[in-house]
């Protein structure tokens, strides 16, 4: 449904998008994830025919974004990052105007208007002037605008920014309900959102794709490493010596020595297997007091931070 081939966008001397290629199947929901300035918005603007690419090609819904720009735009719903709205119009007027520009005829417009207004939780705000709505409501109006013509492809730039938690859940459910009939790309900084709504995650950093996988696979990648947090009372060197023989431990680091209340030390261990029993026995066997022992699996968040702070090239290899 969306084919992106070697896309490049250069602003002056900065490469905002650096040879990006990916595909999105019909009915898929794909999440763009990346730190500020990664190039998410720029990529979306190119796909929506707002900005020209410096190099590369892309197809949306089977049409080339340059040669058949109008056909692409006909099939596209887009929520831009800054949620542009006509502040002097009411919600109904605005959505009607947008619907008309997207080519809906009058009767279809009426039905769709009622549907999106209901789905975006705007029933009681239909006659309100947009300029007087709160930020979250404006966001909902923007979302309604993107979906008014029931487009095949929906591109949403941070659709849940500035929504309240209840509304985030509603919008998330709504987005999920679009799955199957619509192809969606959304960008976000909120990691749980990607795990909950997206079939696939594209992590972008410095204009390059550093990971392209399902949230599940990315989490498995992480969960092969466990992090053990251990607190002991006694000599730190003795603890380190006691842990030495346990081979699955790949890294030991002392987080703090002399904790406030207990006076103990906190260590962090990275292991490739569940060695909690061995660790407990070894420490107690060495005559130390074991105060705490817990194990965490790395979250998507950890991977995100790892992939986007490490050397991009190295990170890309790690995933591949």
């Amino acid at each position: 449904m969306i084919v992106v081939d070697d896309l490049v966008k250069v602003y002056g001397r900065r490469r905002a998008v650096d040879h990006v290629s990916f595909e999105v199947e019909k009915g898929e929901i794909v999440g763009f994830l990346g730190p500020n300035g990664a190039g998410k918005t720029t990529t979306m603007r190119i796909l929506t025919c707002f900005l020209p690419a410096t190099g590369g090609r892309a197809q949306v819904a089977g049409f080339d974004i340059v040669d058949d720009s109008r056909e692409v735009r006909r099939r596209l719903g887009y929520l831009p990052e800054n949620v542009p709205l006509y502040l002097d119009l009411t919600v109904d007027q605005y959505l009607t105007y947008m619907g008309k520009l997207k080519g809906l005829d009058r009767s279809r417009l009426q039905t769709r208007l009622n549907e999106v207004v209901a789905n975006c939780g705007l029933e009681h705000r239909r006659r309100d002037i947009i300029g007087k709505l709160s930020r979250g409501y404006r966001q909902r109006v923007g979302l309604a605008q993107a979906l008014i013509h029931d487009p095949e492809v929906v591109i949403l730039d941070e659709p849940t920014a500035s929504l309240d938690p209840a509304q985030i859940r509603e919008v998330r459910d709504y987005i999920k309900s679009l799955k199957g009939n619509h192809t969606l790309i959304l960008s976000t900084h909120i990691l749980p959102e990607v795990e909950l709504t997206c079939d696939r995650v594209l992590m972008i950093n410095n204009g390059r794709i550093v990971a392209n996988d399902t949230p599940g696979n990315l989490r498995n990648l992480a969960s092969s490493t466990q992090v053990l947090t251990v607190e002991v009372r006694g000599a730190v060197s003795a603890a380190q010596a006691a842990l030495q023989p346990i081979t699955p431990i790949t890294r030991t680091s002392v987080v703090s020595d002399g904790l406030p209340v207990s006076g103990g030390a906190r260590l962090e261990l990275e292991t490739s297997a569940d060695v909690r029993g061995d660790v407990a026995r070894a420490l107690v066997g060495a005559g130390l007091d074991l105060l705490r022992l817990d194990q965490q699996t790395k979250s998507l968040e950890d991977i995100f931070v790892e992939l986007t702070t490490e050397e991009p090239a190295a990170a890309a290899q790690e995933v591949a």
Binding site: F50, R70, R73, R74, Y78, P80, L85, L101, G103, Q145
Partner: peptide
């Protein structure tokens, strides 16, 4: 930035 809406509509 409403120009973005206009230029991305058909």
């Amino acid at each position: 930035g409403t120009i973005e809406l206009l230029l991305t509509s058909p």
